Amino acid sequence: DAPDEFRDPLMDTLMTDPVRLPSGTIMDRSIILRHLLNSPTDPFNRQTLTESMLEPVPELKEQIQAWMR
């Protein structure tokens, strides 16, 4: 099983494109984008959230890719 820090906190699946929300939570980009289609909010604190506020986490993405090899 993947380490917890590699798993999306909402869907508990392996992240492939991790992004940091303004709240500091790291999620998979595809999952948070799907959530934003229904509700333009951070799913953990209900603060306003837009796609432009998502910050890529390239170092975590590299760690996940290395773990998958």
Score class of each variant (00 low, 15 high):
57 V>G: 03
28 D>R: 00
11 M>K: 09
68 M>H: 15
13 T>K: 07
56 P>N: 09
54 L>D: 03
3 P>D: 02
39 S>P: 01
5 E>W: 13
55 E>G: 05
27 M>C: 09
11 M>V: 09
52 S>H: 12
64 I>W: 01
25 T>F: 15
31 I>Q: 06
35 H>W: 15
45 N>S: 14
35 H>K: 04
53 M>T: 03
63 Q>D: 07
66 A>F: 10
21 L>S: 00
30 S>Q: 14
54 L>A: 01
13 T>R: 07
65 Q>W: 14
69 R>F: 11
43 P>S: 02
54 L>H: 00
27 M>T: 04
44 F>C: 07
13 T>E: 08
12 D>V: 06
27 M>R: 01
6 F>V: 02
32 I>C: 07
30 S>M: 12
66 A>V: 11
17 D>M: 05
16 T>F: 11
46 R>Y: 14
33 L>G: 04
23 S>C: 07
14 L>P: 06
3 P>I: 05
11 M>I: 07
34 R>W: 13
19 V>S: 01
34 R>T: 12
20 R>C: 07
27 M>K: 02
64 I>C: 05
7 R>K: 13
52 S>T: 11
24 G>Y: 02
63 Q>V: 10
51 E>K: 10
6 F>K: 02
16 T>A: 10
47 Q>G: 10
13 T>Q: 08
10 L>R: 03
24 G>R: 03
6 F>G: 02
64 I>T: 00
54 L>V: 04
64 I>Q: 00
20 R>S: 05
60 L>R: 01
45 N>I: 06
14 L>Q: 04
35 H>D: 01
64 I>M: 04
1 D>S: 14
54 L>P: 00
65 Q>T: 11
69 R>I: 13
37 L>V: 11
38 N>F: 14
50 T>Q: 10
59 E>P: 06
4 D>M: 15
20 R>A: 05
52 S>V: 10
32 I>S: 00
44 F>W: 12
58 P>D: 09
27 M>W: 04
31 I>D: 03
41 T>S: 09
42 D>Q: 00
39 S>K: 07
37 L>F: 10
24 G>A: 03
39 S>F: 10
32 I>V: 09
4 D>T: 14
14 L>D: 02
19 V>Q: 03
49 L>T: 05
67 W>N: 03
43 P>V: 02
33 L>Q: 08
23 S>I: 02
57 V>R: 03
67 W>E: 02
12 D>Q: 14
31 I>E: 06
25 T>A: 13
47 Q>F: 08
3 P>Y: 05
39 S>A: 08
38 N>G: 11
66 A>G: 08
28 D>S: 03
31 I>N: 09
68 M>Q: 10
46 R>M: 15
63 Q>R: 15
66 A>M: 15
32 I>W: 03
69 R>P: 06
14 L>T: 06
46 R>H: 15
49 L>F: 04
37 L>H: 11
60 L>I: 06
49 L>W: 04
35 H>Y: 11
65 Q>Y: 12
45 N>P: 01
17 D>L: 04
64 I>V: 07
40 P>W: 08
29 R>M: 08
50 T>L: 11
65 Q>I: 14
43 P>L: 03
67 W>F: 09
46 R>N: 15
21 L>A: 00
1 D>Y: 14
66 A>P: 01
29 R>W: 08
25 T>H: 14
12 D>A: 12
9 P>A: 12
11 M>F: 12
34 R>Y: 11
50 T>I: 10
23 S>F: 04
39 S>V: 08
41 T>R: 08
2 A>N: 06
63 Q>Y: 08
9 P>R: 07
16 T>Y: 11
24 G>I: 03
56 P>D: 13
27 M>H: 05
57 V>N: 05
54 L>M: 05
49 L>E: 00
15 M>H: 00
18 P>Y: 02
14 L>V: 13
62 E>G: 09
58 P>F: 08
44 F>L: 05
27 M>G: 02
61 K>A: 10
22 P>K: 02
56 P>R: 08
14 L>F: 08
22 P>L: 04
29 R>C: 08
7 R>Y: 12
67 W>D: 02
34 R>E: 12
45 N>D: 10
60 L>V: 05
16 T>Q: 12
10 L>T: 08
51 E>Y: 10
58 P>Y: 09
